[in-house]
Amino acid sequence: MESRYKKLGELGEEGVLEKIISKYIHEPLPGEYLDYPDDARDILPISPRILMNIDGYSISSMKLPWRTWSDVGYVAVAGAISDQIAKGAVPRDIMVSLGLPPSMEASVVEEIYRGIDEASRDYNLRLLGGDTNSSSTPWISVAVIGYTTAKKPPSRRNARPGDIVVVTGVYGAMGYVAINGVEKATHKKWVVEATKRPRPFLETAIIIAGNYRGVHASIDVSDGLGYALGELSKRSNVRIVLEDKPLYYKELEEICSGSTHCLWKHILNGGEEYGVVLAIDPRLSDKIIDYMKKFRIPHKIVGRVEQGYGLVFEKEEISIDEIMRWDHFKGWVSIL
C-alpha cells in the first residue's frame, strides 16, 4: 500500500520522516555541511543581525471548515514569519514540528507539508527540518530564523507622543467569523477567500529595516487589530487616538447598514490578518508611506500617539470592553 494511505501508527516516526517529510527539506547551500537526517543544521548568515522566533498552534483552532490541510500548513508558516516581518527582518529559514495522533492518515501529513512547501516557495524560505511527535491533540509549531540590516529593530515598547499610527493590511473578515460564528461565515464567499490563506507582506520588512530610525514601534496583527493597538499602547505607556478606520472589506458596509459602531467592531476583532501596526516619527512618515505605495502594501494612517494611556476613539463609536482577543486557554477574552 502506498505510504500516504497508511496510518501514522503503521508508518512509525522514521517512516513518516523518510517517506513524506524528507522530500520537502531543502538541501544545504554551498559552504553549509549538515543535512537531513542530522538533528541540527548549520546556516550561513546573510546579515549582521539575526532574529529568531517560534509559533505554536492547535491545529483544531486553525482548521476552519473551508481550510484544507495544506491551508493549515501554509497559514502556520505565514503566522510565524509575520512576527519577523513586523520587526524589519526578512525570514529565511524555518523548522517545523508536528504533534499528531497515530490513527491519523499519512496523507494528512503530506497535505500539511505541501502547504508548508507552497508558503516556503512564496516567501523564499528554506525548510531545514523539524520533528514529529505523537499527540492526542494535533498541533504544529514553526520556528523561524530571519535577518535584518536594522541596527535597532523596532520593539512594541517605544511608541512616542507625536508619532503617527499606520496600519497595513485589510480588516473585517476574521472579525466577521469571530462575531457571527463559523457557520454563517461559511456562506460568505468574501470571508472564505480572505481567511483561507491570509498572507503577510514581506516588503514591509524591507521598508522597516531601511527606515528603522523612523519606525519607533511595531507589532504584527495576529490576535486582532484591537489587541495589537492596545498592546502597543500598554507596552509603550502611551495613548493611541484613533481618528480613522484602517482599510476594511467593503462588504461590511452592507452588513453594518451604515453603523460605524458595527464597522469598528468587525475591524478590531478577529485575528490572523498578519498586517502590521507601526508608530512612525512624523518627520519620516512621508518617506515611509511613499515606500509603502511603491511596494503596493495596503495601508492607512489611522491615528496618532499622545501622552496618556489606552485606546481613544475620537468619536467614541465603540467601547473598549467590546474588543476581544483569542486566549488559547480561556477562549475569547476582553483586551482589558
Rank of each mutant, 00 (worst) to 15 (best):
P48V: 09
A119C: 10
Y113V: 01
R49A: 02
E118M: 12
R114Y: 05
I116Q: 09
S61Y: 13
K87Q: 15
I25A: 03
A40H: 12
G79L: 05
I54T: 15
A119P: 07
Y36C: 01
S97Y: 03
E18W: 15
M52G: 11
L51C: 08
Q84F: 05
V90N: 12
I46Y: 14
E105D: 09
I21E: 06
Y57K: 09
P48K: 14
D38G: 10
L44A: 14
K23G: 07
D42G: 08
G56I: 10
V108K: 10
D71M: 04
G88D: 09
W69D: 14
S70C: 06
V75A: 00
G88H: 03
V77N: 02
S70H: 06
D42F: 04
P101T: 05
V108Y: 09
P101V: 00
I25M: 09
P48S: 13
E110A: 03
Y74W: 07
S97F: 01
M52P: 07
I21D: 00
S58W: 07
K63M: 09
D55A: 15
K19C: 12
I59P: 04
A119L: 05
D83N: 15
G99M: 02
N53I: 09
T68I: 04
I112V: 13
R114W: 04
Y74N: 00
G73L: 00
L51H: 02
L125P: 05
